[in-house]
Design a protein around this nucleic acid. Structure first.
Lengths: 365, 365
DNA sequence: TTTGTAAATGTATGCGCTTACACTGAGTGA
DNA sequence: TCACTCAGTGTAAGCGCATACATTTACAAA
């Protein structure tokens, strides 16, 4: 049974398809009684206009796209069970440690921000993620169905992105120096880290350990640069021990243990351990706390990201909060503005970060 | 400058549009060298196939839809600033209470689950939310552009949903007794609450306070029924004081204060305070802790939902975790199966909940 | 060489809608 | 009475693609 079309509605209402279309698009251009007849026919047939046909005829879809590179969480997904019976699973959850519960998938917040802003402005949002070798395919697929597109920097080869940008508005997220031909949104990663480091340097004269993320990560690089900026400002570029590790709480614990051990064997504790993200910093805190090393009295610790857990630790963690959700929102806003002014100069928006000074770097009194 | 079409590509490659289409859809049906020529032309022109045209011709889009009713978070959104300069905002965040930071928008997880599963299965997901009086419009708009649709129960009038379901597969989320003609997914709200209550009743002989959500909320109603089920099982339906309030932490605090005050003026403390959600329970805990009333030694407290904060409180909160993310995932899975078997019986999937027994209801030793 | 067959490609149609343009008829002013 | 408007409606032409069917080509067999 085929879905009804304008033709069916037109026939039933005794009008032409043009009139049907008008009733749906510009109701004030038809006489009220014909409109009523058409609406009745629509209702009786359960007619739903085909978005594809409309999009084709109108050359716009009212849909915005957000494209993200694939991430592990998807690959790890297993088949979901579909029980009809439900049931209750009773779990004794006593004595577990209250930790990595908070899945802090960076993308999540971007997606949510984009969704909220898109909805607010009356667009629908289509989200797709690349998977394996089909990712370019997935991307162009999506590009073909939207009026504008948001892409995470480096998620798509330039050879694909550049020609596309000539067709529809494209906003690049987290672009750094590159992508100057595109509208783009980023956050002040580097400045934020510099400001936090600045604060820390003002409160300790000891050695600084910088526990940063992997060399390849652009985020990690920016944050490292921020640290260096602050060190240079204070003329203390020699006081630092640089480390590059993966961004996990376990990494933080491991490094924390090493520092504790070193201290036990007589070496001085560093004045501060700056971390490239909150998870690492929490790991370091875990070990310091376990070893009875008082933070911030004996050593300062700081993080980056502003995840919720950073406000629940003890001591609470000084950190830099990135407005990730705003990243998504701003991108949608940029797209929307680009529709108004298709040929303006590319805009680069930089969102401010918040340096949250909390107990873990409070100057020892 | 108009986007290139198959015609442009065909002309450039010196072939017909049919061949271009074949190169894109079924590459093994064209000679490798023609394919190469076409691909070159595609690249040179920056051709991106129109999703609308394709959808129209193929009568499918590869897109699934998720429709949610509007919620306050959107209405409250203000215009976002788009600064070009970035900057750093330094905030002294000392001494703040570490609390409602975690925005636990129920929908979030549904959306995320649906996204993950859709991506995993190679679909794109389109998410839309209804806003004000245009919501039906938004809904049909979306319905016209997708191959299948997920809708939250009651988000759309039956008069709209029923005829649509004859056209494309529709899955209803959180359907209760109704919606039997649709594929649907729900969780064992009632059974979960019954199981948790059962556990609590086994560990106290005192009065039970049930601090539930608003009467109108179907969720609240189901949970209340679960409590009643357990009370009946234990023959203690008289031991309970029922309360219906809005689902906030402040509500919990207010009620907590009342109980503390009553206790101070000589009334006995209840044996347990069961709450309709975690936020309320955390509010109650806040006040008990502040007043020095030991939980679980003097009174048991439980929540519902399994939000992250419930695992970070002290004592940690016993609660029932709903597999919200799975709700979204299961819905997508159902849709996908429905594509295989368009005419099967409607399926009702019930997902199991997990009762998480933690310190807040641990039997006093 | 001719013929048969399969692979490769082209032609033409239709998917369901919007909209420019053409047409109709009722109302207007002269 | 007769142009002349103009609101209301119809006609028809695409929008860009996939694909059934028709045609051509390549190549093996006769």
């Amino acid at each position: 049974m085929k879905p009804p079309t304008v033709y069916d509605v037109a026939e039933r209402a005794g009008v032409s398809i043009a009139t049907v279309s008008r009733v749906l698009r510009s109701p004030n251009r038809v006489r009220p009684d014909t409109a009523a007849r058409v609406e009745a026919a629509v209702r009786e047939l359960g007619y739903v206009p085909s978005g594809a046909a409309r999009g084709l005829a109108e050359r716009r879809t009212g849909v915005l796209g957000l494209y993200l590179p694939g991430f592990d969480a998807i690959e790890e997904l297993t088949e979901i069970e579909l029980p009809e019976t439900g049931g209750t699973d009773i779990v004794s959850d006593l004595g577990r440690s209250a930790d990595d519960h908070v899945a802090d998938l960076y993308f999540d917040e971007v997606v949510r921000g984009a969704e909220l802003e898109a909805w607010r402005r009356g667009y629908a949002l289509m989200v797709a993620v690349g998977r394996g070798e089909n990712s370019v395919q997935t991307f162009t697929d999506m590009a073909g169905r939207v009026d504008g597109l948001i892409v995470l920097a480096r998620a798509v080869p330039d050879a694909v992105l550049t020609p596309l940008a000539a067709r529809i508005p494209v906003v690049v997220l987290s672009a750094r120096g590159d992508y100057e031909a595109f509208d783009r949104v980023s956050v002040s990663n580097r400045e934020g880290m510099a400001a936090l480091t600045d604060h820390v340097l003002a409160h300790t004269t000891g050695e600084i350990v910088y526990l940063g993320g992997p060399e390849e990560s652009p985020d990690a690089r920016d944050r490292r640069r921020g640290v260096r900026d602050a060190l240079e400002k204070h003329g203390r570029t020699e006081d630092v021990r640089w480390m590059s590790e993966i961004f996990t709480r376990d990494t933080g614990r491991r490094v924390g243990r090493e520092l504790v051990r070193a201290a036990a064997s007589g070496e001085p504790l560093p004045g501060a351990v700056l971390c490239g993200n909150d998870q690492m910093a929490l790991g370091v805190l875990d070990e310091f706390t376990a070893a009875g090393i008082a933070v911030p009295e004996r050593v300062l610790v700081s993080g980056f990201d502003g995840i919720p857990a950073a406000a629940l630790s003890s001591p609470r963690l000084s950190t830099v909060r990135q407005p990730i959700e705003d990243l998504g929102r701003a991108a949608i806003a940029l797209l929307d503005e680009r529709f108004q002014a298709p040929n303006g100069e590319p805009r680069g928006v930089r969102l401010p970060v918040s340096v949250l000074l909390r107990e873990s770097t409070a100057p020892s009194v």
